[in-house]
Simulated assay, not measured.
Amino acid sequence: MKALKMIQYGDIETSLNFQQEDKPEPAAHEVLIKVHAASVNPIDNKILRGDFKAFSKVNFPAGIGRDVSGEVVAVGHAVAGFKKGDQVFSRVGEEHVGTVAEFVTVDADHLAKKPENLSHQDAAGIPLVGLTSYQALIKIAKLKEGDKILIHAGSGGIGSMAIQLAKSYGAYVITTTSTENVQWVKALGADQVIDYKKENYLDMLSGIDVVFDTLGGQYTLDAFKVIKDGGRVVSITGELDPQTAKEMGLNWLIRKLLGFKSRAITKAAKQKAALYRMVLMKADGLQLGALSQLYQDEIINPVMDRTYSFEQSKEAFAYLATGRAKGKVVISMQTESAN
């Protein structure tokens, strides 16, 4: 089969190559999926650049891509609940990374039935951003009806999903975006949209229940300026908190160094008696199934930017790297060109 592989750390053009390899066989608790579509995510480009090699080095050549939608073509002998011919989607576990390929094996526990009303291209854009938002807002921040939530970068893949998810739980949603995207994110359901090119959200907001930090850096620290006492700040790009570092299995020395690095955030959280957590999304088929139902019921809708063919995979990663995508960027095994 043909698969896109990372062959070294570096730029997209020189570090990604198509290679031929044997089609994988599913283990006892796995299924084999014929890939119809895969989506690309910022984490893929970050790993390719080598941003995380201090924590986890890649053994080259290595697969790339964590989201997939396709058809089950074989199941392991211990798999229950899925059969050949099922239309499914998944955010695969780290041991199965490599969805930009003709076939991929997936742990059955990380799998869910694809929403029947969505194409494989639409479904492929859901798992990573959906599970990240679900785990951040529902599982960690405990978002509830009436909460005021600030979601940064509302036009991105994560932001566009998080806005809809938060609205489905009855929250009052505030988001930031650029001038050209203001009306677009309003249409997603945002109650208040702040144009960061013209307005400073720090001058406009206070008493926020939850901040979903998708930008990191100073934005993480500034979140504590707008939340209420006892509020919750959940980040996908900020500094690691002690609990998350422990869950990652990092040794005590690295945790101590990370604690020193995050001391400003720890201090800011303490002053507000606030929760701060960094979210490291985990593949979860049950949670993905819950999200699938929200799409099936059209409570949440997919937000697509561009679709590329398998042969245009490098172009898909390059476009995502520009930071201009509104919604998801998908690679399809069934299309000829970007649209």
Rank of each mutant, 00 (worst) to 15 (best):
T307P: 07
G289K: 05
Y276M: 07
R306N: 11
V226P: 00
L253G: 00
V279E: 10
M304C: 05
I236C: 03
T244R: 04
G207A: 14
K256H: 09
E247L: 12
A187T: 07
Y196H: 12
L250H: 02
N301M: 13
A290G: 01
L215D: 01
L320W: 07
S235Q: 05
Y196W: 05
K198M: 11
L250P: 00
M248T: 00
S292F: 06
K197R: 13
V226T: 10
T179I: 10
T266E: 10
R324A: 15
N181D: 11
K225W: 03
A273G: 13
R324I: 05
D284A: 11
D284V: 08
S313Q: 03
Q218K: 15
L188C: 11
T266S: 14
L320P: 02
I299W: 06
I236R: 00
M281W: 02
A187G: 11
R324E: 14
N251S: 07
Y219E: 10
Q312F: 11
N200P: 04
D241E: 08
M281A: 11
E247S: 13
A290E: 15
T176Q: 08
D297F: 09
L258N: 02
Q293K: 15
Y308F: 15
A187E: 15
Y308A: 13
L205G: 12
A290Y: 12
R263P: 01
K186T: 07
Y219I: 04
A223P: 01
E315D: 15
A316F: 06
E247Y: 03
G249N: 00
K261Y: 14
G216Q: 04
Q218L: 12
E180P: 01
E239T: 05
Q218V: 14
V279N: 07
L188H: 05
I194R: 01
A316I: 08
K267Y: 10
V279A: 04
V211N: 06
K267M: 11
K246S: 13
L286G: 00
Y219Q: 12
L205R: 02
D209A: 12
G189W: 09
I227F: 07
S178H: 06
R255S: 10
Y295I: 09
K270W: 00
L286H: 09
D229N: 13
A283P: 02
L240P: 00
Y219T: 08
Q192W: 11
R232A: 15
T214A: 15
Q271T: 08
K225A: 14
V303F: 04
F310Q: 03
N301S: 15
L253F: 15
Y219F: 15
I194H: 09
K282E: 14
Y319D: 03
G249W: 01
N181C: 08
Y319W: 10
I299D: 02
G216P: 02
M204S: 07
E311C: 09
L253S: 09
D241Y: 06
A269Y: 00
N301R: 12
E311N: 14
K228V: 05
R232G: 08
A269M: 04
K246V: 02
R263D: 05
T244C: 08
R324P: 00
R263H: 11
